[in-house]
């Protein structure tokens, strides 16, 4: 460090503080802009009619996104059914069983999947589900979402369960409880809040995913409950409407985005509040 006068050093310190304050506050501007515009532009078009009716062809005013709301719920629910039991049990495997090679390979695979772009996962689901069935389907869409959820659930389950004290496990085993019951009824409940947080966060993430649905769930302007049929989802509607040439659809894209962000933020903040509660305990 060169020797400098105290006045200069203090001045430098003050400038640095100002710069750091600015750098920390500027990223919040786009956040507030996005949220403000979502609420101001979305709320004016949000109505009971919008939430409960089917889309209408362009040019015809009105119409809604009930098919996409129900589609999103169905897709996320089906993805959870596929990913939650698999992910939790695989996470249990990583934390409770001490094989030599396999666990590290599974961990690497989970990290790899977590880093894989969602559009690439869309291609995989397309190859594995759409091609054998010969058409787009809700099942293919939820398979893609499940692949995205899986690594998150596996790693959070493992991370939470390894924190459960050894004494709890030993206490249960000493009472003569078989190992599987010890894991499912003693270890898992102890870490339940953490596991649930991971599940909710992964649900919040996939609820907003668009790219993996483009060529799996595809979209469908009608109400559909069949897993083997194409289905619509809120992110797909937003993408299609936002890139369409119709002003009325742009308006609806904002309203659909407001619905989506409320859904995502609800899942996300519930998860984070749960995690904070656990951390405070």
């Amino acid at each position: 460090m060169k020797e400098q006068g105290i006045a200069l050093r203090l001045w430098k310190d003050r400038v640095a503080s100002l710069v750091i304050f600015a750098l920390a506050l500027i990223p919040l501007i786009p956040l507030f802009l996005i949220l403000f515009q979502l609420f101001s532009k979305g709320a004016s078009s949000l109505s009971l009619h919008f939430l409960t009716s089917l889309p209408r062809p362009p040019g015809e005013a009105g119409g809604g996104v009930v098919n996409a709301i129900l589609g999103s719920i169905l897709l996320v629910a089906m993805a959870s059914i596929l990913a939650v039991p698999t992910g939790v049990l695989a996470g249990i495997y990583l934390s409770e069983f001490y094989d030599r090679l396999l666990p590290n390979m599974v961990r690497t695979a989970a990290d790899l999947l977590q880093g894989t772009p969602s559009i690439v996962i869309g291609i995989m689901a397309c190859a594995w589900v759409v091609r054998p069935l010969h058409h787009f389907s809700a099942l293919a869409g939820s398979a893609a979402l499940a692949i995205i959820m899986l690594p998150v659930i596996v790693r959070t389950t493992e991370e939470v369960l390894v924190l459960v004290p050894k004494e709890i496990r030993e206490g249960a085993l000493a009472l003569g409880v078989p190992r599987w019951r010890m894991i499912l009824q003693v270890v898992l409940p102890t870490g339940l809040v953490g596991v649930a947080t991971g599940i909710l966060l992964s649900m919040a993430r996939v609820a907003g995913e668009t790219a993996p649905l483009l060529f799996t769930a595809f979209g469908n302007p009608f109400l559909s409950w069949k897993p083997t049929e194409p289905i619509d989802a809120l992110p797909l509607v937003i993408f299609n409407y936002a890139t369409s040439p119709y002003a009325d659809w742009w308006r609806q894209a904002w309203a659909a985005s407001l619905v989506l962000i409320l859904l995502v933020l609800f899942l996300n903040t519930t998860a984070r509040l749960a995690a904070r509660k656990m951390g405070g305990r």
Partner: peptide
Amino acid sequence: AIPSVIYGLW
């Protein structure tokens, strides 16, 4: 937490 498609819309 904001979905990518909403960034796109904005």
